[in-house]
C-alpha cells in the first residue's frame, strides 16, 4: 500500500482526535479537578472509613468474581469448543446475554429471584441467609455481568490451538489432568489473561446491576462506584473526584500492564 497520501494523514488525525475527545479529555478533567482540590484533600477523602470500606468491598467482590468466573469461564470454553451436544448453539448464544442486557435489568432479575419473597431468595431467607441487599447478591450480580469475558477470550484461542497438542501430550504419557495443566492452559494463557483483565476492569467498574441489588447501604453494601455516586448526590465532589481518579488509575494500570506483558512475550 502507498503510504504518503493525504488521506492517511486525515485518518490518523481523526483517530488521534477521537481518542483525545473521548478518552484523554475526560481523564484530564478528573485529574484537573482532583489537583484543584489539593492532594491533601484527596488523601483525606480517600481515607475516610466510608471510602475505605467501599474500596475494600469492591476488592472482595472483584476477587470473588474473578476467581469464580475464571474457573467457570475456562470450563465453559472447554465444553463449548470441545464437546458436541444438543443445544450447544443456544448456550453459546446465551453466553453473550450479559453483554446485551442492561445491568439494571439484570439487577432487577436478581431481586425478583433472590429477593426475600423471590423464588430462591425466600428459601435462603428461611435459612437466615440474606442475598439481596448483601454481599452474596452483589457478587452474583457482578458474576452475571462479567460471565462472558473469560469464556469469550479463551474460546477462539482454544479453537485455534486445536486438539493435536493435547493428543501429543496423551501419547507421551500425560493424564488428562496433566495435559490440561501443562499443555491446554499454557496454550490459552494470553486469552485467559486478557479475559481476566477485562473481568477485573468490569468488576471494579460495575455500577448498574450492583446498585440495584445492594440497596447502597453506606459502610455495608456500598462499593467504590456507588461511593462515587454517593459523593455526587451529596455534593461531596472531593470524595467523588478522588475516588473516581483512583478507580481510573487502577483500570489504566491494569490495561497498560497487560499490554506491556503481551508485547514482551510476542517479541521474545
Amino acid at each position: 500500500m502507498k503510504t504518503n497520501n493525504p488521506g492517511r494523514l486525515v485518518l490518523i488525525t481523526l483517530v488521534v482526535g477521537w481518542f483525545a475527545v473521548l478518552i484523554l479529555l475526560p481523564v484530564y478533567g478528573i485529574v484537573q479537578e482532583t489537583v484543584k482540590s489539593g492532594l491533601s484533600l484527596v488523601v483525606s477523602s480517600l481515607s475516610t472509613p466510608h471510602a475505605r470500606h467501599a474500596f475494600l468491598l469492591t476488592f472482595w467482590i472483584t476477587l470473588a468474581a474473578v476467581i469464580i468466573n475464571t474457573v467457570f469461564g475456562i470450563i465453559i470454553a472447554l465444553v463449548l469448543v470441545k464437546q458436541e451436544f444438543r443445544g450447544k448453539l443456544l448456550i453459546e448464544g446465551l453466553l453473550d446475554l450479559p453483554f446485551a442486557v442492561s445491568p439494571i435489568v439484570a439487577g432487577f432479575m436478581f431481586i425478583i429471584l433472590f429477593g426475600p419473597n423471590g423464588l430462591i431468595g425466600s428459601w435462603f431467607e428461611g435459612q437466615g441467609i440474606k442475598i439481596i441487599y448483601a454481599l452474596p447478591g452483589m457478587i452474583i450480580a457482578t458474576l452475571f455481568v462479567t460471565l462472558p469475558f473469560v469464556a469469550r477470550e479463551v474460546m477462539p484461542v482454544l479453537r485455534e490451538a486445536g486438539l493435536e497438542q493435547e493428543e501429543a501430550a496423551y501419547v507421551l504419557g500425560a493424564s488428562p489432568w496433566q495435559a490440561f495443566w501443562r499443555v491446554t492452559l499454557p496454550s490459552v494463557k494470553w486469552g485467559l489473561i486478557y479475559g481476566v483483565t477485562l473481568t477485573v476492569a468490569r468488576s471494579i467498574g460495575e455500577f448498574g446491576a450492583v446498585i440495584v441489588v445492594s440497596g447502597n447501604i453506606i459502610n455495608r453494601t456500598q462499593t467504590a462506584t456507588l461511593h462515587i455516586h454517593q459523593g455526587f448526590t451529596d455534593f461531596n465532589y472531593a470524595a467523588a473526584y478522588s475516588a473516581a481518579l483512583l478507580l481510573a488509575i487502577l483500570s489504566f494500570t491494569l490495561l497498560i500492564t497487560m499490554q506491556t506483558l503481551n508485547r514482551r512475550t510476542n517479541e521474545s
Binding site: 490451538a161 493435536e164 497438542q165 493428543e167 501429543a168 501430550a169 496423551y170 501419547v171 504419557g173 500425560a174 493424564s175 501443562r182 499443555v183 499454557p186 496454550s187 494463557k189
Partner: peptide, 19 residues
C-alpha cells in the same frame, strides 16, 4: 487409553507444544 499404551506418535502437523 493412549496414555497407557506407550506408543510413539508423530503428527503430520508436528503438534509441538508452542509455548
Amino acid at each position: 487409553t493412549a496414555q497407557q499404551r506407550k506408543v510413539g506418535f508423530v503428527f503430520q502437523h508436528y503438534a509441538l507444544f508452542k509455548h
